[in-house]
Amino acid sequence: MTTIKDIATKLGISTSTVSKGINGASDISEQMRQLVLDTALEMGYIPKSMKDISRRKICILIENMSYENIDQFGYEIIEGFKRAASKKHMDVTIIPTNLSMKSSRRYDSFMLKNSYSGAFFLGLTLHDDYMAQLIQTRVPTVLLDNQIAGNPNVAYIGTENQEGIDAAVSHLAELGHKKIAFLNGTEHSMVTEERQNAFTSCMESHGLIPDENLIRYGCFLPDCAKDHVPGFLEHGATAVMCASDLIASGVINEAARLGYRVPEDISVIGFDDLPIAQYLSPPLTTIRQDRTALGQSALLVLDSLINDLSISKLLLRPKFIVRGSTGPCKAK
């Protein structure tokens, strides 16, 4: 097993300098610190603090996801993760991040420098700098709705999209809807691609024809509805499926602004079942993700990776919730 002395010998420096570099001391240069960290990683060094299960530190790296209150998507995921970590006597640090931060430091170096045994990533998209680094990382890492193939140190958790979307399409088909629109989230994200593919295949399996004029990428915010709902209505949509409840709330508001009633004129379905879903007017039919369970599952998988049990992915089952925003297709 690699020791501080081994690193010092390879670099031709003192063990105290290696220790300072690994432990973040302020009296060595940043260049020397990075050299020490990079060499430690290459040699497979693991600090005692990362091996000590009685004081293990883990972190949540989060970007482009709100989590401060219960109405926001990330809140219950983080709460579930923290509760599960507490039972394992793990300390959790939440670290908001952005692209400039990620570009200025190597992921593995950051984790080693701060003695984090593993991380849970929330909200990062496939093209991000850290995602490229995760292809070769040695750090136990769990991703929500993202996947890195071939690295046994990285696992993926999420909700089974196909099952939830199939239930929603089946529900609308039984209500007589054929012209069903799909308003997706942000492009270049694995989860949005999966949901769009699921929507297309589920439409076809129910004998319905997906219309390219009725399938659009937006973003996971209500405001994107105003850019797409008028076009959906112009092309005859009688129902709109949305990649999130926030998008669905925007669709309901935009339909009302244009003089359409929900669900009498157009039905709307969301995804997530955020607390606000049941308080919209009308209450929102949606595909529920158990976000607390997602957080608990992330910790379960991360703990397994830390203990050398390699897990590829863990998917939770969704639940379809019928409320007042869907109704029979209006005869035309």
Rank of each mutant, 00 (worst) to 15 (best):
N184E: 03
I215H: 07
S201C: 05
T3R: 10
P263C: 03
T3A: 02
L37T: 03
H188I: 02
R317M: 11
P275Y: 01
P152K: 05
R288M: 00
D227E: 15
E79F: 07
A225M: 05
A85C: 13
F320S: 02
N253R: 15
T97I: 08
M101Y: 05
M111I: 00
E63G: 05
S49K: 14
A25W: 10
A225S: 05
D308A: 01
L221N: 14
G123L: 02
T39S: 08
S189M: 15
K51D: 06
E264C: 05
G150F: 04
K319W: 00
L300E: 13
L221I: 11
R261P: 08
A255L: 15
R317K: 15
N23Y: 12
V92D: 06
S103H: 09
H206N: 15
D108Q: 10
Q136C: 07
K5G: 03
G123Q: 00
C329M: 07
I306T: 04
L221Q: 11
P282A: 02
K319F: 03
L246N: 08
F182W: 09
Y156D: 06
I77M: 13
I78K: 02
A25G: 13
M50Y: 09
T159M: 09
A40V: 13
N213S: 05
P318I: 12
I252L: 06
A248Y: 01
T238C: 02
M190Y: 11
T125G: 09
I157K: 06
G259A: 03
Q34G: 00
S86T: 09
E194H: 12
D166S: 06
V154N: 11
L122H: 01
G327R: 02
F320H: 13
Y279R: 09
V240L: 10
G24Y: 01
K10M: 13
E68P: 02
A132C: 14
N253A: 09
E76G: 04
S104K: 09
T2E: 01
S249W: 00
